[in-house]
Design a protein around this nucleic acid. Structure first.
Lengths: 253, 253
DNA sequence: AAGTGGTCTAGACCACTCG
DNA sequence: GAGTGGTCTAGACCACTTC
């Protein structure tokens, strides 16, 4: 089998919308990604070079290049100078994105539900104040929630939010994920820093999650920032490791 | 305090090397990153706009823009159309990069050592064959190693490599990290897909790591691909969660 | 209206890999 | 030498935010 056979995608690029709000490079990237996922561009196959692809589509090279680069950054393509661009081997997996557990579960076809265990306004201790970038002792919203998928408890989530969000109500939290609520208020999470670890469950946690005592837990600490760079949320979450794990794709830059 | 005071970096950009092999956008990004880390550009401060920065430096806008974009992708800066570019709040943490545990430990000032527990050539079962993209039943190199930092066991690492690497010797593995060895052979890891989870330690693992029975372990499965998109390595690693954790920075694109 | 980042063009030269 | 991606230029127009 020719492992580097040259594949020339055809009129996969029909009907590009040059006037709409969707950037051209994004449309190109979408089509190529689709071709990879559908198997039209099999693993290891070579992609047409940037220049000729641009000419065929009537686009400038930087535009085509950006589309390809985005797919490289996603881990779908690999480029080598002097050689060309190839589809990476191995099945394509969606990596961790900036979504909450609630959305992860919804997307995978499970029915998420939330039970609020605690909900109160507290004074930030020094650790929380530092994470949120507020003054120690200032008021923050604290919540502790139990997240279930199809009525099986998956995660215990503790979250702290700056005072400006203290009007988020318990009833809202019962119906929607935290990130959904924030987004509906016009807050866009742009950057999140996560630390993933493991430890044994405490007695309380074992009871909440209905698992055996001393069970292993997958833990995540996360600080999320909005598009002005301000901390919006700090969370400490514990997951049942048999029901949840993190997938990450790393790309050398 | 003016949270969005406009900061104009000065001659931080002296002595740009326009003829050397280091790209200009990279040099610019380096200087700005340094200014952030050193506190010259404090959290929340605004960066000079792209156009005027380019003019002052005698660089085109796309070049300056790329430098800034790289820092946005790293989670150091945040941009808003019509507003400007700001330094993200919160202390800057280095995220997970494409390095091995060996390098992680070295960099943090610890002295890594490796003990080879098993080392043999085996026939790939269907799972390993799929991960490595080879035929089931074909020969692969298998190793099981214990990694210690300052003589304390941190991790048990199982790795499988395609036959072309079966000449990697035990003595090499005793002296260097796996990624170091691969790099010295001209293999560049370009993409890696990781799955991070947790579980209880087996009796054997408890003994190897010298931890209590039933302790929690942080686990990672990883498939790494080189710059031609071929799978180079599959690994299943277990870490002592009190000694190691993963840090990830996510950026909305 | 002024200022910002987001997109796009149409070229140029270079470094690297291969036959 | 031919083909590839990597870098860089010098503009252009647009969308969005703030005043």
């Amino acid at each position: 089998m020719n492992q580097v056979e040259q594949i020339l995608p055809i009129g996969v690029f029909m009907d590009l919308d040059r006037s709409g709000p969707i950037p051209l490079y994004f449309q190109i990237a979408q089509r190529i990604e689709k071709a990879i996922l559908s198997g039209d561009l099999p693993a290891g196959s070579r992609l047409e070079n940037e220049v000729s692809l641009g000419e065929r589509l009537g686009l400038s090279r930087p535009t085509v290049r950006r589309a390809i680069q985005d797919l490289v950054d996603k881990g779908l393509l690999v480029r080598r100078r002097g050689i060309g661009t190839q589809v990476v081997h191995g099945q394509v997996t969606r990596g961790v994105e900036l979504t909450s557990l609630y959305e992860d579960l919804s997307r995978s076809g499970q029915k998420p539900s939330t039970k609020i265990l605690e909900y109160k306004k507290i004074k930030a201790d020094s650790k929380i104040a530092e994470k949120l970038g507020v003054e120690p002792g200032s008021e923050v919203l604290y919540m502790r929630r139990l997240r279930a998928a199809d009525n099986v408890a998956v995660s215990i989530m503790e979250n702290w939010l700056p005072a400006e969000f203290s009007d988020i109500s318990e009833s809202e939290l019962n119906q929607h994920g935290l990130y959904q609520i924030l987004r509906s208020r016009g807050v866009t999470i742009r950057v999140a820093k996560q630390k993933i670890g493991a430890r044994k469950a405490s007695q309380q946690e074992s009871a909440d999650l209905a698992i055996e005592k001393q069970a292993s837990l997958l833990t995540m600490d996360r600080t999320a920032y909005d598009n002005s760079g301000r901390a919006v949320e700090f969370g400490h979450h514990c997951y049942r490791p048999d029901l949840y794990s993190f997938e990450v794709t790393l790309v050398e830059k």
